[in-house]
Design a protein around this nucleic acid. Structure first.
Lengths: 210, 210, 210, 210
DNA sequence: GATGAATGAGAGTTCATTCAT
DNA sequence: TATGAATGAACTCTCATTCAT
């Protein structure tokens, strides 16, 4: 059904190359990632990589874009859970905060951020694309939810986007410190503590009764 | 007094190489930074770079270490200004916050963080060294000040280190978003706004009257 | 039939590289033999040399091994001509001696011996391989023949291997002196004289009537 | 008396450099012998080597020449012991043969021969110098002694130089085989056996009663 | 005379990319 | 389309040699 040579086989190969590329780019960085190695990891010949993606730079762009799209989807799915759920606001915020943190601390997320940081000089446009297409949209979605909670009287924000940014900062900042750019795994218990502390501070500043 | 060939000349060359190395490493990344180019930037012959620093990796390590030491000194100098200054606490926090932000957003700081992110895979030990020798010490110093302000009744913290991390997160998080990994300059006015918003949230959460 | 890119073409290139390598190594020595030059001599790109042989050292080893195998084959073919041919023993010995001398004095032989001498410090294992795989086997084959001639009553040896070594020494020693490590060509007439003198001495010592 | 800066000190340094050069050239070969290393081995600065010997090539020539002169002296001293000593001819030949073999198999001798072989392409004139100034003179001296022994009726040679060459060949040839270009030490007992076998064959061929 | 510092030239090796099958 | 083979450009590092002190 999906033997070599079928259309399905082709697509499989494209995806296999993309997956292999992410692994190798993440591990070695753009410059040191050898196309041979990516091809070997994908189980195809080097020239096949070229026939699919043209050159190393294009392969890199597609790899990063695909990864960013995936990260965006995951984050949006989390943010959408933030609904005005009665008086369980704190618990909801903690749940959402923890889920966001887990997305943020996933290996793939760290790898993607390290790649972007590393190659921001060589590929400045990638940064723009990822930020506008992914990071900013998550912040906007979060701001939307905070605005709704403000309207419904559960929160007290004047600039929901700023509040969203600060909420995210209270989550990611302390996590950054422990994760050492993703080289250290942070236990779930620590993530939970970070999320609770973030929500605590956030609610003191933006809680309705504040 | 400092002609070619004197001991002073030698030291000048060492420093010139280090400066050039930072510029080139920051611009190109470790792998693409050619030693020829560093040497040219420093105005010396390629072999001179090797006679001073042994190999490219050692040069990189020394470059990063020197840069981290400098960043540490600047940050510590700022944190030390955070003294319990009567009822001008908000203004003091805003001043310190803004100065920290300016350090954080300086070109060299961004370049150093990008380098660390980029090469964390190749040089994982560098991350540890920089974090323990620089970043953590700034956080500790900030926590010390917050603890004193708590003792003096100006603040209300139970975990000063956590408060310090959150304070820093409220500053750096929103700045991160605007700066696009340092590829965009953030105007001073925006930095000031970020600092004020950070202090606002921080004081709501940790102010003495809270 | 053997166009570029065919399997045959690949093999041709391998051999061309090996031939070129021998020429250049012999002319310049291992250290001064530039891979560029070998590649140019073989009519391929430098990287092709690397893709076939990995690195300079491996190329050197394969070059020397191939050359030694060839020399072994030539010498064995000569020794096999030494059969108990009635009362023409002196003439047969002189013929075989002269042929051995010609092998010994061939340009390739000298080049190989100079290479081995030159690089015995860097590649001591090569010496062992060549000796056990080539030189010693020629001596053994020669000893075998001398033993047969002793059994058949044409010679009078007690230690055939020693006799073989001495026979070879009587040939090569005087030739060494004239050849100046192969930098001087020795005329065939001189080689013949050396061979005759060697056989004369040899038969006085080991002839049946002695 | 011989402190730094005295004339004696200078000469000491020249000699130290020469000794160090021989060691390093012998160990590494000409091309790989670094002048830094020679200087370090001699305990002087690299520039000092240059001020004494001009350049690497000159240093090499002087090193080899000095070594050849020393080898010549040792060999001549041995040959001079070959006098017509009554009916102890065999014993005398064996003694002289063994001493020649020991000279031939000395580490320095092997190192010198390997160097000459290695660099015969780069420095063909060195070969000529060493041969005419050293090797040939030993052969001539040996031929002189054999001629005298012929005149005195102890030997029976028609071409004393040929006989000398063959005598030397019967010694060095079998030794060559065991010594693997000097990489293997040959025990004295084996050298003695070789010498005795050589004399045995030699006397069968050139003994007076033959 | 002796030395530490500096350098230009060159070598081995890798790798993105192309081409013929 | 997929691939093995080939290549040119580039990069790290070394070393003989010179110069100022």
């Amino acid at each position: 059904m999906s033997g070599t040579g079928t259309a399905r086989g082709r697509i499989d190969k494209r995806q296999a190359i993309l997956d292999a590329a992410f692994i190798v780019f993440a591990r070695e960085g753009y410059a040191l990632a050898a196309v041979d190695v990516i091809a070997a990891e994908a189980g195809v010949a080097k020239a096949t990589v070229y026939s699919h993606y043209g050159d190393k730079e294009s392969l890199f762009r597609e790899t990063v874009s695909a990864s960013a799209d995936q990260a965006l989807a995951e984050n949006l799915a989390v943010v959408e859970r933030l609904t005005g759920a009665g008086d369980e606001l704190r618990a909801t915020l903690e749940t959402v905060g923890l889920k966001l943190l887990k997305c943020y601390c996933a290996d793939r997320s760290w790898a993607l951020r390290r790649l972007l940081a590393a190659e921001s000089g060589q590929f400045p446009d990638l940064l723009d694309v990822i930020h506008t297409r992914a990071a900013d949209r998550v912040a906007e979605a979060l701001a939307d939810r905070l605005a709704r909670l403000t309207v419904s009287g559960h929160l007290h924000t004047t600039d929901p986007l700023l509040a969203a940014d600060q909420f995210f900062a209270l989550l990611s900042g302390p996590a950054d410190k422990r994760a050492r750019l993703g080289t250290r795994r942070t236990p779930d218990a620590d993530l939970r503590a970070i999320a609770e502390a973030a929500v605590d501070t956030f609610l003191k500043a933006f809680g309705a009764e504040a």
